[in-house]
Amino acid sequence: MKLPDAAHTSRPWRIHEITPDFRLYDVWALPTPGGPDDFPLLIQDTVGGDTSHSPSWIARTLFAIRWKLGGLLGWDGEDSGVGRRVPTLRDRLPADLREGPTGPVFKTLPFKSVFLTDDEWASEIANKTMHGVMHMSWVPDGKGGYRGQMAVLVKPNGLFGKAYMAAIGPFRHLLVYPPLMREIDQTWRAHGAHGVRGT
């Protein structure tokens, strides 16, 4: 379920300290009801994600087209990524976060972990269109339990980046996020059925 920006901005997340020049694009409540100790499971699911295995053929097709275009137009070359076109956000971390855990390594998605706390995890991605952050958190659900929350923050790369982000907006909201939420829901329910997560 899409949430108002305040669901992210009103919380004292550490990510606010290092992304003042990024724009908040999306905030989503994730269908991941659980207990206070289930955040690592959400992180595990996220780093194991693969767009080519999405159950939605529309989402698979859109991502395949995006990666193909990126390859043809040079959007995703090594010189455009984190540490090359843009410095990693780890360079902005305060000492306590820099000395803490970075977070896990993604298996296939082109993200790099920035920092990890007990209830907050940030990862970043960069190409010739933008520098983006996926912020995952673990929040009380108001019913005595917890759930995941995802925020997407972006710093577009110039006018081209702004135009690109505006152009893909409808596709993200209509064709990418709905099947992604269903996939997250199915995976999380499977964890519960196998007794992997808490209550």
Rank of each mutant, 00 (worst) to 15 (best):
R147P: 06
G161W: 06
A95C: 12
G148R: 07
F171R: 03
R23W: 00
G71P: 12
P20S: 05
P178T: 03
L73T: 14
V82K: 00
G70L: 08
Y164M: 00
T46R: 09
Q149E: 14
F171P: 06
A64F: 14
E99P: 01
D185P: 15
T32K: 00
G103D: 04
T129F: 09
E120M: 13
H135S: 04
V176Y: 09
S52V: 14
G132D: 03
R11V: 10
R84M: 10
G100S: 08
L175N: 03
G161N: 02
V47H: 03
D76Q: 11
G144Y: 04
W57K: 09
G195V: 11
L41D: 02
A64R: 07
G198H: 00
R84F: 12
A95T: 14
H53W: 15
D91H: 05
T102V: 15
M150I: 05
W57R: 14
R85A: 06
Y25V: 12
T61I: 04
G83V: 01
G195D: 04
M150E: 01
D141C: 06
G81V: 08
L72N: 14
P179W: 05
L174M: 10
D119H: 13
T117N: 11
E120T: 13
I43A: 02
W13I: 14
F111P: 00
A64E: 06
Y25L: 06
S80C: 13
V86I: 11
V82L: 07
G81K: 09
F171N: 04
R147I: 03
L97Q: 12
W57Q: 08
L3W: 01
E78S: 07
A29G: 09
R147E: 08
H53G: 07
G83N: 03
F39D: 09
A59Y: 11
D45F: 12
I168K: 05
D45K: 13
E120Q: 11
S10N: 15
L69G: 14
D45S: 10
A190R: 15
Q186H: 14
T199N: 10
S113Y: 05
V114H: 09
L116A: 06
V82H: 01
I125L: 02
W138S: 06
